[in-house]
Each structure stands twice: as C-alpha cells, then as structure tokens.
Design a binder for these strands. Sequence first.
DNA 1: CGCGAGATTGACTCGGGTCAATAGTAGTGG
DNA 2: CCACTACTATTGACCCGAGTCAATCTCGCG
Lengths: 284, 284
Amino acid sequence: MQSQPDQRNASSTMHSTPMEAGRQRQGRLWSNLKEVCDLLHIPAAVSVNSEELLFQHVQFKTGQRVHTIGQAFDTLYIVNSGFLKTVLIDEFGNEQVLSFPMKGDMLGVDGIHTRHYASEAVALSDCDLILLPFKKLTALGRVHMELENLMYGVMSRELVREQAMIGMLGALSAEARVARFLVSLADRFAAMGYSSKLFNLRMTRHEIGSYLGLTLETVSRTLSAFNEIGLITVDQRTIGIKDAEALKTLRRLPPSRSRTKGAGAKQKAETDAAGDDQVLATTA
Amino acid sequence: MQSQPDQRNASSTMHSTPMEAGRQRQGRLWSNLKEVCDLLHIPAAVSVNSEELLFQHVQFKTGQRVHTIGQAFDTLYIVNSGFLKTVLIDEFGNEQVLSFPMKGDMLGVDGIHTRHYASEAVALSDCDLILLPFKKLTALGRVHMELENLMYGVMSRELVREQAMIGMLGALSAEARVARFLVSLADRFAAMGYSSKLFNLRMTRHEIGSYLGLTLETVSRTLSAFNEIGLITVDQRTIGIKDAEALKTLRRLPPSRSRTKGAGAKQKAETDAAGDDQVLATTA
DNA sequence: CGCGAGATTGACTCGGGTCAATAGTAGTGG
DNA sequence: CCACTACTATTGACCCGAGTCAATCTCGCG
C-alpha cells in the first residue's frame, strides 16, 4: 500500500544500518560529528577526527514525549528516523501543532533561551533521535568553528521556516494552506529519498488542521475537493500527488489584505476575475 | 559598505547626524559590548574590556529600508531607538508584516542561514541602529563565550516569539488577537520605560492587520468596540489602556479545534456558554 | 466481532472579509 | 493662512468561507 517508509516498525528494520559498531537491533547507538552534519544537510567540511566525539542515540516509541513544556532544557535532538509533532498547549489545554519534524530536523532549540523547553515534542511513529547535549555542543563549538556555524545555520533556518508559516497563516485561504502543506510534505519526502508522488500522512486530520489553523472538517473537505478535481488521490492517510504544479500555485482569496501602494491593484482585479470560477491558476 | 543608511536619498538630510565624530543629539556613534548586552537585556557578566571592541551606529529615517529580501547578508542590527517593521513580500507583491522591532530587538537573524536576508526591514520612525558585522561577531564569540551564548539566546528567544505568533494566528479570534497585540505593545513600552497605559501606535491599521492576519477594517472595528466597552480609549494612533487584565484574558471562539483527549470538553462548553453574550472574561 | 478513534459529509450559522462612502490629518505650495 | 492632495481611519451594508453540530462510515485492534 503505502509506497514508502512505513513508520511503525521502521526502526526495527533499519534499511541501511544492520549493526556494526555497537550492536543492537535498531539503528546504532552512536553517531560521529560527520554523520550529524550529513543529517542536517550541512556541507560541513569537517576536519574533525570523527570517531573522537560521538553522540548517543535514543529511541522513542509512538506516542512518547521527547520533552514537555517547561521541562528543564539541556539537550537538543536530531531526528535520525521517524516522525514527530511539536505542540504548544494553551491555557485551556488545547494543542496547537507547530511542526512535524522528520529525518534531519532539529528539536529543542526553543529551550535555549529560558533553559526550559517552550514546546512539547511527541513521536508520531517509532523514532530514533540523536542526542546533542547543549553544553557539550557549545564547548565543542569553540574548538570546531564549523560546528558553531552549523548551529547558527540551523537556528536561522528554523526561524525562516516559522516566518513562512506566519505568512501562510496570515494570508492564505484554507485550500491554499492544505495545498502547500501537501507540496511541502512531498518535497520533504523527496529530500529523504522517498517518493514525492505517493506517501502516507503520519498525522491525523485534526493535527493537520491544528498545524494549518483550520478545523479537521475543513481539512477533510479540502482533501476531498482536491481529489474530486484530480489534483490528488486520497485514501485515508495515503496521499497521491497528481498535479504538484497546480497545488503549488493554487490560491484563493488572492490579494485581499495589504499590498503597499496602488501598484498591483490592476493585477489583483485580473487575478480575481480569472480565479473566480477556476479553483487553481497557473503561474502568473 | 552595506551599512550606509541610505537606500534612497538619505544623503540629503540625516536628521540627527549633523556631522561630528564625537556625539550628536541622540545616541552616540559607537557602543561597546556591555552596552549591547544591556540593550538586549542579557545579564552578560562581561569580563570584556569594553572600550576595546566597539560597534558602529547608523541612523535611518522614516520609510527607509534597513535591508531588503534577497540582499546579501553580512550584518545583524540591534535597535537602539526608533520603531520598525519587518515584512515578507509574497508573489503578488503583498506585504506580510512579521514583527515590529523596537529598542533592544535584533534584526537580520533570518539572513544567517542562506546568507541572504529573508525579510525586509523598514523604519517606521527615525531610528538609530547598532551594526553587528556577523563575521566579527562569530570571531569574537570564540574568544568571549558569553557572546556566543548571547547569540544563541537571542535567536532562541526570537524563535519562541514566532512560535507564540503561530499559535495566536492559528487559534485566536480577531478580538483576541487585537487585544493581545495591545497588551504586548504595552508590555514592551513598559520594558522600555515608557507608559504602558498611554502610547502611540507607530503603525497603520493596515500594518496591524497584516501582522495579525486581519483586514484593516476589522482592526479598526475591533478597536472601536474595545473603546465602546471601555477597555481602551482610541484616538487615531493614540491608545489608552483602561483594563489591561480584561484585554489579556479576552477570547472568543475559545476551544474550537484540538484538545487532545476528552479532558476539558466540559470546560469548553462552559466557556462557550459564559462567553456567549459576554465579550470578555476574567482570569480562569 | 464489536469497540473506539479517525475520517467523511451534510446542513446551518456567523465571524470577518469585501465593497463603498465619509471624514479626519498631514504635508505642500500658492 | 488656507486650499489641495494623498493618506489614514471609521462605519455601514452585504455576503461568503470556514467553523459548528451532528450523523454515518471505515478501519485497525483487542
């Protein structure tokens, strides 16, 4: 069914890591700096003698919490395999999903400032994470400056990602949000070497909705509508991307707010007219 | 090189930089590390001999751009005085306001990752900024580890701020967003030593709306409504806070989405009922 | 094989976006 | 000093996108 990475027991049958160094069924226990850099997609012309400093792995099972809000901060995590969600809990106990970290993503950065995690990370599947004790990291940073730059880069990247998220929440319609979410997922799967055309969602409609600032019903309806139109295929959590380009450029509610000057007003009108009875539009 | 404040025609009349090396009316031309740390509210038990490393100031006039999207990154900025906005520009030229930096805030962090600024910063008033050449900063970081921690702290803080923003955009009603925006502004003014009860907005309704994911009309109406109810006074851009507590706890559309388990469902109902004809609610 | 979480759909409502008219404000120049 | 222009803010009337409520339907699991 699902073409790719099945989660549940993904770690048990680690495709490429039988067991060399340590030895135990799932993943290895330690990674060196180079492996960490590779995972983060950082060039990292590391001159470091790898085997010297090793970082431990830890496994989490589906549903387990990696860290909770308010918990004392002392380590960052890098996802080696598996899928998670990070959430904020508001004053009523409602969850607000902030991100869906997967292979190569870093967790825990929001804990640096106050020395307490500001969000909660939950495993959506069995996961293998690499521990990066923050103290150790900063100490090393002073020796290996590429590591320091790595840290700045990762944090800055995360910042940019959140900015894009804010832009999306502030300006896009429900359909556009769902469409971009799918495209974003597809891209990330592609970057991980999986199919970007057919994959399984690891999260519920509810979680997607929370992430996108929508209700689960709207998410469900929107997916059905995309299916109807032929942009995707939907079967429960299995998604097939049929027209990635259309999804990327899909909008609605085009340029409602803002637009600094009068420039573009004309374009707006045109766009509106064109999009009036068309659900999607090709690149302008 | 880049640092010249003039994107357009600054050369004509710099308001506050007559032209003497020593000092001019507001702010001095250079700041040492301690002053920078103070500005950032970082304890910074700096053992550094201050006068050794100095950071240059630059002035920007209202409307000038500090940096634009895509511009090569090489320096961070700290606001010493004045007010700005940072914006994203979407594919149609629409602005999406991301933040309203003021004294003590850092700009440009989003440029670290790709080495190009990801957002645009515009002065909403005449400003005095401190330049932090990034290269210089990282070099210093290796010598003074408090500086390194300072950087991590500032970036992490910004990350947490954006997370809160995402949570707000994803979960709160228009009224709640405006209310929290006002409270947030009041708090920031208070932290700067100004009155938190009476202040002037530096931005237009349009910019506020963009920031909060609302239209300018909704912002205007909401402010009028708050005024009506006696929570605030409004006169153009002059805002008087009358009931900060009510603003802080004001909601609407309380727990629509999410809420992990059944817990809290009851509370939801109660809240809904209570809030049905009451616009605000006191602390739970 | 039945239970419960998740997903899908429909019917209805309403918050807030859209369009539009009016009015205050500020800067400019005669 | 006052008109002239351009922006900004306030309000009203209208309407649509998405939230709410609720009834199935599906599927994985004990």
